[in-house]
Each structure stands twice: as C-alpha cells, then as structure tokens.
Amino acid sequence: MAEVNLVINGEQVRAQEGMSILEAAREADIFIPTLCHHAEIDAYGACRLCVVELRQGDRSRVVASCLYPVAEGLVVETESEKIKNYRRTILNLLLQRWDNIPRALLDRYGAAPNPRYVENMTFCILCGLCVRYCRDVKGANVLGFIGRGTIRQVVVFPDQAMKYCPTCGNGEMECLHYCPTGVITSDYQGTGPANGQPLPHAYPVCIRDETNILEILERVGHLEY
C-alpha cells in the first residue's frame, strides 16, 4: 500500500492509501466525533457528525470524513467555525430523538435541546449499526429498516430473532454493544434483555417508537409474532 501525506488542522499526517480521512485522523490522535461509525463495520455516512472541511486555496468543501478517501496533498480542517456550527445543529436535531447524548459531546459544540423543535424521543438515531452488524457481520438479518423519509425505523423480525438471537454472543446478543444510544438494552416498558428476554418482544427495536406504519402492519397480520 502506498503512503500519502495530508495536512489535518495544519499538522502533517501520513496515511495508507485507501484509508478514509477519519481513519487517518484517528491514527494521528485527532478527534472527529461520530455516532454511526464502527471500525469493524463498513462506513455508512449517515450521522454526518464527522463532516470536515477540505480546503483548496480559497475554496472549501464539506465532506463526510468516514467516507472520503485520503489523497496526497489533501488539506483538512476538522474543527473550523463552520464545522463546529454544523455539528451543533446536527446534535440539536438529534437531541429530539435521543436526549442522553453524552454530555461531553454536547458541551464541546454548545448543543442544547431547542424548545421550537418537535420531539420524537425514540432513542433510536437510525445509525443502522445494529442492522448492519446483524446483517453484514453475523449474516443473521434479524433486524431491518422499514419505511422511508421521516418515518423510517428499525424493526425486529421475530421469526429470525427466535432463530439467531439465543445463540448470538452466547445469549448476550452482540448487537447490543454497538448501539450508541443503548436503547436495545434499555428497559423502558419492562421488556428487553434486562428482563431476561431474548429481544424486546415488541418490535420496533426502539421501544418508544410507535408510528402508523407499524400499527398498520400489525393490523393486517404483517410482522405477526
């Protein structure tokens, strides 16, 4: 693998060709926040918290560092004013779905809940880590996305769950460790692994999420358990 040189926040950084900016930065101990990234799973580019600025002379471009490949001579800013503002806005938005975002992250960018926003406290930020781990790493397909746009959500497919979950991680269910919000392990309605059950009985994964689409599916016997 060829080596390339790039500049991150004014610092010379060496990286292997084929790496993403995020990987190169992490190797050089430069902080870039992420919520949908995990080293063991393919990059996904959904949370956009990892956006950075690429500088070319006077021009700049905002890219997702988890996906953008390193290249010789790249000039990257990870904490410019613009990027910090964007991250604050993104975190403010995410707070409407998950109010326990780690304090340090919120403080770093000055994020806070905005009373003008509509709340949708599902505790699922749709990072897809559980779905991707289950599908791409375990080949189990217990979890999946349904719907699109603002009603997209993660659901459990009970038949598959019965088949795979009891043996996954010796009954521990490995996907739990990948959920950044911890919602799969949480115990809001007396369900979930904390109560000794293999997976929340109730789909969706994120128990507080009750949207029309599921009610409809349930009514006609789709996803029947």
Binding site: A46, L93, V118, L126, R148, G149
Partner: peptide, 22 residues
C-alpha cells in the same frame, strides 16, 4: 420531501422534519 427523503442521513431526515415543523 419529508415523505420522499430516504431517511438515511441526519441532516436531511431530521433537518426536513424540523424545518417542516417550523
């Protein structure tokens, strides 16, 4: 767009949700 966005990335999904709400 709220209906037609694929809903994958946060800026589009959550951004449209809150802009529409406002």
């Amino acid at each position: 767009l709220a209906e037609e966005s694929c809903g994958k990335c946060v800026p589009c999904r959550e951004g449209i949700t809150q802009m529409l709400h406002l």
